[in-house]
Design a protein around this nucleic acid. Structure first.
Length: 647
RNA sequence: GCUCACGUAGCUCAGGAGGUCAGAGCGUAUCCUUGGUAAGGAUAAGGUCACCGGUUCAAAUCCGGUCGUGAGCUCCA
């Protein structure tokens, strides 16, 4: 852009949003100065601007007529600018304390920021306050932040001189002809596309949260840098609220609720191998029976295949070659066996046990298959990431022209399931990874087929290059946990390999043998992961149909025990999960415990209820509902259960 | 697997510059209390302070290793 002032033009016109007429200013006025002239409040709130649609610094001088939009912290990109500046201030502070620090990268992320450092000494959490203090100092200095545009050579020279080897590496990788920009604040310079706040003093409150290691460029073979995470807000109150929200989220953590509600446990004796307790088991079985019902309706047939199978099968499927490091092995009668890490080879054998015609297609074989995978120790996470889990798997064998219809059917099925639980989800399409089998042409065809269905249905999706399975591309469905981390649940994987490897055939209309196409798919994904996400989603307060204990009967004194038992038995006979709390405690105490355990309904019975044949109904969320005749209670609960209502 | 941190009764956590430091609350058991919508009272039981090794007269406390857990990275349902 030509930044020299136009000698002919004395004034330029700037069009601001929400203003009828343009502001007339002198060329060279910065966005910030302009805002000062027209709207002081906006000037104060602005963190960046959009000039003719392009995100820019407030310090950008304007030389031509332009449209200017103000970007504040409230805008997503405004928050990013704000926090990105916070990450620079943090980097500056770290460099002030440890001058040999080499900088990695330091972007803004969802609700915060981080910066990666290469330091000689390991950082420990005790050092964070010191870094925070230095950051406060830098903010107090209110250093102006200036943008500099450099040539590739200048930039190289600058960062080489400063000993920033990672920055030099980044510059070397920038495409030719790209404008290289840097930002300077006091003695600190960083390679950065910006934009940034106009000065360090604009930063109000921030907090450094945690430390972690992170490989340079996310590559395991590259050095590990030290990453500091933090967050920043324009108001102390917003920061406090954010920290409060994090605290609340931790209360929903499935690992915590799993223990408190006695759903499951994990033990040192079996890292990553979960134990289901009676209450967790009820939820799991409910999920499974819902699943069976829906799958029967959707035309699936259920099968079960063995957990341990001969080595030759895994060699044939390609797992021996491509998945060995994740597999468990055993030896029986001098033969090598493997514990199944996936259900597909077993399903192949089921298919091969019969003869199929094109008329049998699509053939949908479903399996609740328990698989074992030797995941790296550092990746284990409660029930979200475990080493043994049950996949609600299915393998669909079909004609090539049935692929798109089947994929569409699965997308509908997944959507139906997630809706029942009220889950929001996002979709990703993963393409061919480096370590994979099959021809380029096969991959292209398969990927195009998946993409086609998504596009036809107008679904938003993100493409994950090289993230597919070794046998084919896939569509993944992701859900969020209590902290907003996303987890892959449902997946649809197209596979042209397995039918080849197992020489699967069907008889076509022409009487000849042909190769079927195949899809692997899961809806819940892994029962363990889905269960964990459900716990966090509901914060432990499961809808009635899933609640391990649906109702508890609370007699007020011993003389009400007989009637309480009657009430309990009546509910039991209607198939409800009900308990009787006849402990020698006050009703307040029993109610509190039922609330803490998030039991949906409490039936309090005393003299009045015995007399009238009612129960004083209390809902964990709605409180006291007053006396209700037993038969009405039964009807209400039945309706709520059958409707899978979320209450 | 990697980086950093953590590991004390079933749970949540105090304590710990090496020596009356094995503590609290919740929970559990027993007894008293029979009480109407979120904790009634008393008493008691419970831990070789993750495990192994080292330093020391003495280790829960210091050092090393192992295992497990957490946050992230890598990888994945």
């Amino acid at each position: 852009m030509d930044r020299s002032a136009d000698p002919v033009k004395k004034q330029i016109n700037i069009y601001l949003e929400d203003r009828e007429s343009p502001a007339s200013i002198e060329p060279g006025t910065t966005v910030q100065e302009l805002l000062g002239q027209v709207n002081k409040r906006l000037q104060k709130e602005a963190v960046a601007a959009r000039v003719n649609g392009e995100l820019a610094d407030l310090t950008l001088p304007l030389y031509e007529d332009a449209e200017v939009e103000v970007v504040t912290f409230e805008d997503e990109e405004g928050a990013e600018v704000y926090r990105h500046t916070a990450s620079h201030v943090m980097a500056q502070a770290v460099k002030r304390i440890y001058d040999k620090t080499q900088l990695g990268i330091g972007p803004a992320i969802q609700s915060g920021f981080y910066y990666d450092f290469d330091l000689d000494e390991p950082l420990s959490p005790e050092q964070l306050p010191q870094i925070e203090e230095t950051m406060e100092q830098i903010i107090k200095e209110d250093l102006p932040i200036e943008r500099m545009e450099l040539s590739r050579e200048e930039a190289m020279e600058l960062f080489r001189e400063r000993g920033e080897k990672y920055k030099v590496e980044m510059i070397a990788d920038l495409p030719e002809g790209e404008v290289i920009s840097c930002y300077r604040q006091g003695e600190f310079i960083d390679l950065c596309t910006g934009p940034h706040l106009p000065s360090t003093g604009k930063l109000k409150t921030f907090k450094l949260l945690n430390l972690a290691g992170a490989y340079w460029r996310g590559d395991e073979s590259k050095p590990m840098l030290q990453r500091i995470y933090g967050t920043a807000f324009p108001k102390k109150k917003m920061l406090d609220e954010h920290l409060q929200r994090l605290e609340e989220a931790r209360k929903r953590d499935h690992r915590r609720l799993g223990r408190e509600l006695e759903l499951f446990s994990l033990h040192e004796e079996g890292p990553g191998f979960p134990f289901y307790h009676p209450r967790g088991m009820i939820i799991r079985r409910e999920l499974e029976s819902f699943w069976r019902e829906e799958h029967r309706r959707a035309g699936y047939h259920e099968i079960e295949t063995p957990m341990i199978l001969d080595r030759s099968l895994w060699e044939q499927s390609g797992h021996w070659e491509h998945y060995k490091e994740n597999m468990y092995f055993t030896r029986i009668d001098d033969r090598d066996f493997s514990v199944k890490p996936m259900n597909c080879p077993g399903a192949m054998l089921v298919y091969k046990a019969g003869m199929y015609s094109y008329r049998d297609f699509p053939l949908r074989l479903a399996e609740m298959g328990l698989v074992h995978r030797h995941e790296k120790s550092g990746t284990l996470h409660g029930l979200m990431r475990v080493r043994s889990f049950t996949q609600d798997d299915a393998h669909i064998f079909m004609l090539p022209e049935q692929i798109e219809g089947e994929v569409a059917g699965i997308i509908d099925l997944v959507d139906r399931f997630y809706r029942v639980f009220g889950f929001a989800y996002h979709i990703e399409l993963s393409t061919r990874p480096e370590k994979s089998m099959g021809t380029e042409e096969m991959w292209e065809r398969a990927t195009a087929a998946l993409q086609n269905v998504l596009e036809k249905r107008g679904l938003d999706f993100k493409i994950n290059e090289g993230d597919g399975a070794f046998y084919g591309p896939k569509i993944d469905f992701h859900l969020q946990d209590c902290l907003g981390r996303t987890w892959q649940c449902g997946t649809i994987q197209l596979d042209f390999q397995m039918p080849e490897k197992f020489d699967l055939t069907y008889t076509g209309q022409d009487g000849q043998r042909h190769r079927p196409a195949m899809i692997h798919r899961v809806v819940y994904g892994a029962m363990e992961r889905f269960f964990a996400l459900l716990v966090e989603h509901y914060g432990g307060a499961f809808p009635l149909w899933l609640a391990p204990v649906q109702a508890v009967v609370l007699p007020i004194t011993d003389r009400h025990h007989a009637y309480a038992k009657e009430v309990r038995d009546r509910l039991l006979s209607e198939g409800m999960r009900v308990e009787l709390d006849d402990r020698n405690e006050k009703v307040n105490y029993k109610i509190r415990e039922a609330q803490v355990q998030k039991v949906p309904y409490m039936l309090v019975v005393g003299d009045r209820e015995v007399e009238a044949g009612t129960a004083a109904l209390r809902h964990r969320g709605e409180g006291d509902l007053g006396p209700v005749p037993l038969e009405d209670i039964l009807r209400m609960l039945r309706e709520e259960i059958d409707g899978k209502k979320v209450k």
